[in-house]
Design a protein around this nucleic acid. Structure first.
Lengths: 240, 240
DNA sequence: TATTGCTATATTGTCGACAATCTGTTTTTC
DNA sequence: GAAAAACAGATTGTCGACAATATAGCAATA
């Protein structure tokens, strides 16, 4: 075998680019929950035909950030307080499992990457770009799932990440003020390097709980605001 | 509110039907792992154009039972022993969580449905249709996820179910002999009706482990058989 | 003989146009 | 005037054709 191994080439089809664009638009809040995605308009804006756009949308529907009603349209998912609570509780379960699986795999390289991402979080905190802060924090949290050597777990986590990123972005946009500047990850990183797995798991639970409590409160507010609607009534759809 | 509530009408687009057909073909083993899906041929066989077929395939790629290589084709996923072990371990984690969440929701209706599905399993055991047996067993296992009142968990479980169904179907096809006729679910159902949640969780772990042990052994055999290939070598692709 | 370059063919990716369906408005009917 | 029917507009679903790309086979070359 040759000395240098090459990875397979990155796929570059229009479809893949469209997926990335749409996903980013949803996860940063540029496309709001409930908003309808008009195929013709978007395809014209992106200068592509509807075929690859529709295929891209199918992917995102399956990924859970869009929802489709035949002959009616495709919409950004709505966000309820229950959705956020559910994401939170599943996150707890997955984190605990991920830590257990990652624990024996913690090499020097793992620790290095852990520090690198922690630094990225600290650097992002100084910045005003809230999207960057969210991404950096989620990247840090992703590490235990990436090192668990469990492709299904990673897959599940990445799917969950999409939703988390969307929730946090919504929250940030609504509050419109920077995230608390103090670094809550110091302890988390320290425990991941240590020898007490149970402690690390416990901390993951409790630490993440803090972030979520505010999120859920925020989402409940959102719902109260729109509580005039009848239960089964359709929300007014905002066109693209 | 009126006396009878109606569910939304089933969506009937070609795409949805194609998804169902393809999914069934993969999960029953009619389409084998690694097999390539030729768009033109399938679209002609189904008497549809490639557009809805391609959209359907995008969904199944995202659902994890197909995999796509740009300009090369879309294939049924390969199955390794590690994949099965991973599915098994994630299943354990999710089951434990599902039982915890379902526990307070166990109404009379839940018990009735539990019995109904258990009966379905027992009836399927008498039959020769192995596919039906697998589906019935998975339906029974699905119950705790459906009653957990946790849409993300259910979503994750359903995605996992696809893989499990495929693994079991492969196994059955390879062995080509009926599943053991004894009913291993009696205890499981009994515990789910009882008052000891921990016991139910423990049993779920151990009972499911039995089913999986044989599966994993089978998959390892499969890999040994094809172990002549070099590590990175492409498997020969079987065309549709 | 092994490697490189070219060619032919098959297959996937993308496009523009048409058909099916939904929604809101207008017209008809009682 | 109210309910039903018919119409109009817009949007999604589907189709057939073309463009871009990959694969296999063969020729050329060292």
């Amino acid at each position: 075998m040759s000395k240098t191994d090459f990875d397979p080439i990155i796929d570059t089809t229009r479809r893949a680019e469209i997926v990335a664009l749409l996903k980013r638009a949803v996860l940063t809040g540029k496309l709001e929950p409930g908003q309808k995605l008009n195929e013709l308009r978007i395809s014209e804006q992106m200068r592509v035909s509807r075929a690859p756009l529709r295929e891209a949308m199918r992917e995102l529907v399956q990924e859970g950030i869009l929802t489709s009603i035949p002959y009616a349209g495709t919409f950004v998912i709505e966000v309820t307080a229950k959705d956020i609570e559910d994401a939170y509780s599943l996150n707890q379960v997955l984190d605990e499992f991920a830590i257990e699986r990652t624990w024996p795999n913690r090499t020097k390289q793992f620790v290095a990457e852990l520090d690198r991402r922690h630094d990225a979080v600290k650097r992002a905190t100084l910045n005003v770009d809230t999207t960057g802060q969210i991404e950096a924090a989620l990247q840090l949290h992703s590490l235990i799932h990436e090192w668990a050597d469990h492709s299904l777990l990673l897959d599940t986590w990445l799917r969950l990440t999409s939703r988390l990123q969307m929730y946090f972005a919504l929250h940030q946009r609504a509050r419109n003020e920077p995230v608390p500047a103090i670094d809550v990850h110091e302890e988390y990183v320290r425990l991941l390097k240590g020898n007490d797995m149970k402690a690390a798991q416990r901390h993951a639970r409790e630490h993440i709980a803090l972030d979520f409590e505010e999120l859920v409160a925020f989402a409940k507010n959102l719902e109260q605001r729109g509580a005039g609607d009848k239960s089964g009534a359709k929300r007014k759809r905002i066109d693209t």
